Simulated assay, not measured.
Amino acid sequence: VYAVTHAWSPPAVVPQLRLRSVLQRLAEERGRYWLHEKLALLDKQAAQTIDPRNLRRTIRALEVIFSTGQPFSAQRRQGFSPYRLFTIGLSRPRPQLYARIDARIEAMFASGLLDETRHLLEQGYSPDLPSLSAIGYRQCVAVLQGKISLEEAKAQMRRLTRAFVRRQANWFKPGDATIHWFDLTTTPVEDIEAAIRAFLAEESSPATTVASVKETGVAG
């Protein structure tokens, strides 16, 4: 989303599946932090902008470097954004957010997440696909493979989703002047809608108007 709204052009390098497999295996054998250190040796600027825990982005950066012989950071270009942005941040205390996460996970399984995953595997989709490595699918695959129990899958999903919330809170900071923050425990939805309508009613701009929404948690 950020790349689109801020006109960042990613390197035009098609996926190198064999290379990705090698890098993935190295990460499994030596750790994602080891792989990130190798990225730092090749492209310090890229390493500074990529979280060492984000293995997928680390692998992508190395993939581009090895494929082109050029630093990953030198191949990202920012152009002129055609959008006039109104970014909304929605916050609520962590305990409330965690409770909603737990309820959502239970609802996902009640709605057939495990059966959906089983159907995808039966259709021939590989469990190694990036889409099936997302939180939820990954744990369901492990359940269907007999590696973990259903309760362990739910526990992993709760833990990983909460960690994701904490990363979001670090990325989308309350002090960011480009984000209009609303506390969902004290702000009526009507007030948020009014803010959006006021933005849309402003003098028209030659650029396209986009309202984006980000929700994160705050320490409770």
Rank of each mutant, 00 (worst) to 15 (best):
L160D: 14
N170V: 09
E203F: 09
R92W: 06
E151M: 11
R30L: 13
S205E: 13
C140M: 05
P52D: 08
D191S: 15
L17N: 12
K38I: 13
A177S: 14
A142W: 05
R159D: 11
R76V: 07
V143D: 01
P93K: 02
L121N: 03
R25V: 06
R25M: 08
L19Q: 04
A134R: 15
A201R: 11
H6P: 04
L85T: 04
E37P: 03
T185I: 11
Q48C: 12
T208A: 10
A194C: 07
L19C: 07
Y83S: 00
V218L: 13
T161Q: 09
T185A: 14
V218H: 02
A155T: 08
W34M: 04
E203G: 10
A142H: 09
I196T: 05
A211C: 14
Q75M: 01
R159S: 11
A46N: 01
A107T: 11
I59P: 00
S205G: 08
P93A: 04
P130E: 12
W171R: 13
L26E: 10
L26P: 01
D51S: 15
G220N: 12
P206G: 06
V143I: 10
G79W: 07
L150H: 14
D183W: 12
A3G: 10
R104Q: 15
L35D: 00
E190V: 09
S81A: 11
L26D: 08
L144R: 02
L114P: 00
P130C: 11
H180F: 12
C140V: 05
H6W: 13
I88D: 02
E122F: 03
K44S: 15
N54P: 03
R18T: 14
G69K: 01
R32D: 07
N54A: 10
L39N: 01
L26G: 05
Q96P: 03
Q16P: 02
I59K: 00
T58K: 02
P71D: 05
H180P: 04
Q156N: 10
S126I: 07
P52F: 03
A198D: 15
K173P: 03
R77C: 04
I50M: 03
R60I: 03
N170G: 13
R159W: 09
Q48S: 15
A201F: 06
K44C: 11
T178E: 15
S21Q: 15
R30D: 10
A99M: 10
A103N: 11
P127H: 05
D115E: 15
A40P: 00
L160H: 09
T49F: 09
Q70L: 07
W171V: 09
R104S: 14
L39P: 01
V143S: 02
A7I: 06
A134H: 13
V14P: 04
E116A: 15
P206W: 07
F66Q: 05
L55C: 02
P82F: 10
L129V: 09
L23G: 00
P174D: 07
T87F: 07
Y137F: 15
R162M: 09
A177P: 06
K214L: 11
